[in-house]
Amino acid sequence: MECLKAQQMLSEAIDSAVPEDELAEARAHCVGCEECTRFARSLERISSLPTPVAPDALVSRLVALGAQEAAVLRTAPAGSPEDGVAPDGHAAAPVRLMPAWWAPRLTAYAAVAAVLLVALVATGIGLGGVLSPREAVFETAEDTRARTDGAALSAAPAPGGTQEATKALSDTLIAPPYVVIDGLVYTPTGPRTVDAATLVTATPVLTSLHAASDPITLPAYRISTSNDTAVLQLTDGTYLGFSAVTREFGGRAFVLTSGSLLTSYGQWPTLPARFQQPTAPDGSPTFSFFGKDDSGTLIYIPTGGQATDGFAVAPGSGPQDPAAGNPNWTWWQRL
């Protein structure tokens, strides 16, 4: 056996099972080879040494962080109106950034803000009326998203607020500009040129876009080089680009789906028809709590489902969440 082969065998034997006869041959080689004997001696010595050990104080801190996270998770799944915790109430509460004493206060403040906004809307004033009546009157569909986000930011249920307030708030909001292409929800990115070679024909889309007129059917295409991009061909032959509405889970993108056709901007995506509407805040009987996505929003899976294939998000997600303002449960599938 050559020296290199013998040394490789000795190294590999430390980490995994190797054929006995080959290891024996390598050891026999070492007996008569000074270089390999030195290597074997060093290898044995290095392998016997202790590896770095995390300081006790660090481990204690980590254990404490884990205990905090466990406490948050214990309160989260119920998410019932009675306990005043929205479905993703704890998700936006960073373990390190927010002291524990602040959380209940923030919950109370957010709840008050939500109730105040609902009261404003109910009296016909609304934020638009308070801040800028003229803009409110002439608001276009393209402004919808910004207004929706602004309102949601002002009165977001997360990390506090009641579900009733969330529902009332959602009912008053208009959805962002969405279209549904092959069951997936997209939002417009603006006019774009396309390379015909990259177009993959999708099911035509029935939509009026932002217009108040009746919806028409427009040819739809996905872009083969970008799996989160699609285009609609407008009546004048130009193309309008769209980007899939996504969220991250485990570092992977999941796209929003809709069980209903959204025939104009401003309509909320709904749960696909194959799912029974949950009747409880914890998703039952259709879903059960699973964990959190990468942004900390709580996610739910159907019985026997794998979160890596798809998951549901409850209404009332935080203001920065891609489902913010949606009064419906939403389903997100692997992009």
């Binding site: 481990v59 466990a70 989260a76």
Partner: peptide, 26 residues
């Protein structure tokens, strides 16, 4: 751990803290 079991979090920490720390130190 995801169900809020504190002991599970602790087990995860105590089992893997040395490896993570060792990698970061190196």
């Amino acid at each position: 751990a995801l169900s809020g079991d504190e002991r599970s979090f602790e087990t995860l920490v105590r089992t893997h803290a040395d490896a993570v720390y060792g990698h970061a130190l190196r």
